[in-house]
Design a binder for these strands. Structure first.
Length: 224
DNA sequence: AACATGATAAACT
DNA sequence: GTTTATCATGTTC
């Protein structure tokens, strides 16, 4: 039961038997683009609604205020919504998109630097039955978390968890490190930010090459 | 008015 | 099987 029920790259990850909780310092890095890459292969854990779930992070996007026009905190715009991103790294920033979908971000950098990494896809690892129940009628497990809104629904993540600390032993949401592994990373432009002008071309979206649990590549990509 | 999307159906290959 | 169009839906500033 500790094996992911598929034949993808992560078939040998063994849940939290061998993974370790990421420490506060991990999130204080001032380069969110670097962190977005480092988060690939890490394990997102949720312990909400009485159920425990885990998924391998397989796709991310970096958002870097103040210069990033695609960030909600562009120009260091401080509002009630964006205030979470100005907190110290290691919390989560969760917001509602298009009135329907919750989006899960990891806040990074020291306080008052509004950086964040959007988690865009996970490979389900633990709590599959809970995820299937939360997601409702879907045909295949690869659709449980292959999109930012989908993974939030599968993991039971919603805005009432906005601002939660990710690095405490008993956090409702946390990130764990399963140890080093050899993965190939693809980079490309971020999704759904055509309004962001020049920033829309920055290759700040990352995903694990050949992993079947990422969202569809609707932008050009290249190996890094 | 715009928005860091998802589910579905209908039309293609 | 894959692409395309359409709409659902609520918060933000």
């Amino acid at each position: 039961m500790f094996y992911s029920p598929n034949n993808s790259f992560y078939f040998s990850f063994r849940s939290n038997l061998i993974s370790v909780l990421l420490k506060r310092e991990f999130y204080l890095d001032t380069d969110p683009v670097c962190l977005a890459r480092e988060l690939l292969g890490k394990i997102l854990c949720s312990h909400v609604e009485g159920s425990y779930c885990e998924g391998v992070i397989v796709e991310t996007e970096a958002y870097k205020a103040p210069e990033d026009k695609a960030s909600h905190a562009y120009g260091n715009r401080l509002t009630e919504r964006t205030s979470t991103m100005f907190g110290e790294g290691g919390r989560c920033y969760i917001y509602l998109c298009y009135g329907i979908h919750e989006m899960f971000n990891i806040v990074s950098a020291p306080e008052n630097i509004a950086h964040a990494i959007l988690i865009r896809a996970i490979e389900p690892l633990e709590g599959l039955e809970t995820m299937r129940k939360r997601r409702g009628r879907i045909k295949e497990d690869k659709n449980l978390g292959n999109g930012p809104g989908k993974l939030c629904k599968a993991m039971g993540i919603s805005r009432n968890l906005n601002g939660q600390i990710l690095y405490h032993k008993n956090s409702l949401l946390s990130i764990r490190d399963p140890g080093p592994s050899a993965i190939n990373i693809l980079a490309g432009p971020r999704v759904g930010i055509a309004y962001a002008g020049e920033c829309a071309n920055w290759p700040w979206r990352f995903r694990i090459k050949d992993n079947p649990y990422t969202s569809l590549p609707d932008n050009p990509e290249y190996n890094i």
